[in-house]
C-alpha cells in the first residue's frame, strides 16, 4: 500500500503534515510507546524464558507472585506471566488478522457501493443495514455456535462482523468524491471499476483505512476477549486474555487468587487504551479541521 503512487497531487504533503501532527500528540505517543514495549516483551519473552505458557506444574499450583513466577501461577501451576504474554500474542494475532480481513471486505464493499452505481450501492448498503442491526455480540454468539470454538473460527467470526462501519465511511467519502471532475473524466476515458478502486478510491480513503484499522484492532481484542470469556472463542490450552479471565467466573479464583485474573484484565485494558490513544491521535492528525487548533 505504501508503495502505491498517490495520484492526487496534494496528497503527499498533507500526509507528511499529518504525521507531524501525530508526533506532537502526547497521548498518542505514550500509547505508541506502551504498545511497542508490550509488543517487544511478548515477542522476546519466549526466546529468553525457559517456562512455556502451557507447561503445567501440579506441585506449584495457585501460587502468588514470586521471584520464580513473577505474576504467580494458575490452578494447574502454569506461569501466569508466560500465559499472559502468550495470550497477548494470540489476542493480537486474532485481532490483527481479523482487522485486515474486515479492512479488505469493508473497503471493497464500500468502494463498490460508492463507485459502482445505484443498484450495487443499494444492495451493498442494505446488507450493511442488516449486519448492523444486530448487536455484535449476538451475531458473534450465533456465528460461534455454528463454527465452534477455535482460533481460526474466532478470526473468521470477528472479520465477518466488523466491516459494515468501514463500508459506510468509505462509501460516503467516495460519494463526495464521485462528483469530482477527475473521476468523471476517468470514467469517460473508459476506466474500469477495478482501476477506479485501485487508483482513486484507495488513495483517497487511506486516512479512513489507517484510523479504522487501528481502532478495529482494539475492538477486535475486546471482541475476542468477550467471546473467550464466554467460553466460545480461543479454546484452552491456548491462552488468551479472555479465557484467562474466564477462570474468574468462579468465586474462589475471583476472591482468593486475584493475580490469575487481574493481570490479564489489566493487560487487556492497557493495550486497548494504548491502541485507542494511537487511533485517536491518528484521527486527529488526519482531520484537517484540527489543523488550526
Amino acid at each position: 500500500m505504501a508503495t502505491t503512487p498517490i495520484s492526487h497531487p496534494r496528497a503527499k504533503s498533507p500526509a507528511r503534515r499529518a504525521l507531524g501532527r501525530f508526533g506532537s500528540k502526547p497521548g498518542a505517543m505514550i500509547g505508541l510507546a506502551v504498545f511497542a514495549s508490550l509488543l517487544l516483551l511478548m515477542l522476546v519473552h519466549p526466546l529468553v524464558s525457559g517456562i512455556g505458557p502451557n507447561t503445567i506444574d501440579l506441585r506449584a499450583i495457585n501460587q502468588g507472585p514470586s521471584a520464580s513466577h513473577w505474576l504467580g501461577t494458575d490452578g494447574v501451576g502454569r506461569d501466569v506471566f508466560a500465559r499472559l504474554l502468550e495470550g497477548g500474542r494470540i489476542s493480537l494475532l486474532v485481532a490483527v488478522t481479523s482487522s485486515v480481513a474486515s479492512l479488505v471486505i469493508g473497503f471493497l464493499i464500500g468502494a463498490v457501493a460508492g463507485l459502482g452505481g445505484r443498484i450495487a450501492d443499494a444492495i451493498a448498503m442494505r446488507s450493511v443495514d442488516v449486519a448492523m442491526t444486530l448487536p455484535p455480540v449476538i451475531l458473534l454468539l450465533v456465528l460461534a455456535s455454528i463454527t465452534g470454538p477455535g482460533i481460526g473460527p474466532t478470526i473468521l467470526v470477528i472479520s465477518l462482523l466488523s466491516w459494515p462501519v468501514l463500508s459506510r465511511l468509505v462509501r460516503s467519502r467516495l460519494l463526495e468524491l464521485g462528483q469530482r471532475d477527475f473521476v468523471v473524466a476517468s470514467r469517460g476515458m473508459g476506466a474500469g471499476l477495478g482501476h477506479l478502486i485501485w487508483r482513486h478510491a484507495l488513495p483517497n480513503s487511506i486516512d479512513i483505512l489507517v484510523v479504522f484499522a487501528t481502532l478495529q484492532v482494539a475492538s477486535a481484542i475486546l471482541l475476542e476477549a468477550g467471546l473467550s470469556f464466554l467460553g466460545l472463542g480461543v479454546p484452552p490450552p491456548d491462552a488468551s486474555w479472555g479465557n484467562m479471565l474466564f477462570a474468574a467466573r468462579s468465586t474462589t479464583v475471583l476472591t482468593n487468587y486475584p493475580w490469575q485474573w487481574m493481570f490479564p484484565g489489566l493487560a487487556l485494558v492497557v493495550v486497548v487504551l494504548a491502541i485507542n490513544f494511537i487511533g485517536d491521535g491518528l484521527r486527529d492528525a488526519f482531520d484537517p479541521r484540527s489543523e488550526g487548533a
Binding site: 470469556f229 487487556l268 486497548v272
Partner: peptide, 22 residues
C-alpha cells in the same frame, strides 16, 4: 477512556469482587 476500553465482563468481575466479595 478507561470506560470505553474496559469490556463489560471485566468491570462486572471487578464490581462483583469489590462490592459483593470484599
Amino acid at each position: 477512556s478507561v470506560g470505553v476500553s474496559s469490556p463489560a465482563f471485566l468491570t462486572a468481575l471487578v464490581g462483583l469482587y469489590v462490592f459483593s466479595g470484599v
